[in-house]
Amino acid sequence: MTGGTGGLGVVVARHAVQRWGMRDLVLVSPSVVPEAEGIGEVIAELEEAGARVRVAACDVSDRAAVHDLIDGIRSRRRSGRGRGPRCRCPGRRCGDRV
């Protein structure tokens, strides 16, 4: 979820977990500051609701950076550390698992 550590991103992340039942979230921000305002509490809240949450830094205007992010998610899935969502990235086959 791009903008996932910002105010609106947090609202959407909560909604995705509480209403849509999403269980695997990657909150993406151009730069991740560990002490970003309240992000620790948000992660704890989402995890308490049953979601697995990862926060990642990625400039989504940089196609190569986005592909690296997706590849990292994909490798976590292969290693058994997560099941990723279906890819919606331009240039990938629609429906690829990440």
Results as ranks from 00 to 15, higher is better:
Gly80Asp: 05
Pro90Arg: 10
Ser31Leu: 09
Gly91Asn: 00
Ala56Ile: 01
Glu35Cys: 01
Thr2Cys: 12
Val10Ala: 14
Arg86Lys: 13
Ile73Gln: 04
Ser29Val: 10
Asp62Cys: 13
Gly84Trp: 02
Arg19Thr: 12
Ile39His: 07
Asp96Asn: 03
Gly6Gln: 09
His67Met: 11
Arg78Tyr: 09
Arg83Val: 15
Val32Pro: 00
Pro34Met: 06
Ala13Ile: 01
Arg86Leu: 15
Arg93Asp: 12
Cys87Leu: 04
Asp59Ile: 12
Val26Ile: 13
Arg81Phe: 05
Ala56Cys: 07
Val98Ile: 12
Arg86Ser: 12
Gly72Phe: 04
Ile43Thr: 13
Cys89Met: 11
Ala64His: 12
Val98Leu: 13
Val55Ala: 05
Ser61Asp: 12
Arg97His: 13
Val53Pro: 04
Gly91Leu: 01
Ala51Gly: 06
Ala56Gly: 01
Ser79Ala: 15
Ala64Phe: 09
Arg76Asn: 05
Arg52Met: 09
Ile39Gly: 02
Gly3Tyr: 07
Gly50Pro: 05
Ser75Asp: 14
Gly80Trp: 08
His15Asp: 15
Arg93Phe: 02
Arg23Ile: 00
Val55Gly: 06
Arg19Lys: 14
Arg97Val: 14
Val53Phe: 01
Asp59Asn: 15
Arg54Gly: 00
Arg77Gly: 15
Met1Gly: 10
Ser31Ala: 13
Pro34Val: 06
Gly84Cys: 06
Val11Glu: 14
Val26Thr: 15
Pro85Ile: 08
Val28Ser: 04
Ala57Val: 07
Val53His: 00
Gly84Ala: 02
Ala16Ile: 01
Arg78Ala: 14
Arg23Asn: 01
Arg14Phe: 04
Ile70Trp: 08
Arg23Trp: 02
Pro90Ala: 05
Cys87Lys: 02
Cys58Thr: 11
Asp96Pro: 01
Arg19Asp: 14
Glu45Cys: 04
Gly6Lys: 07
Cys89Lys: 08
Ala44Pro: 08
Leu69Glu: 06
Ile73Ala: 04
Gly38Ala: 04
Leu27Gln: 07
Arg77Cys: 11
Ala44Thr: 12
Leu8Trp: 07
Gly72Asn: 05
Ser75Asn: 11
Val66Thr: 05
Arg92Ala: 04
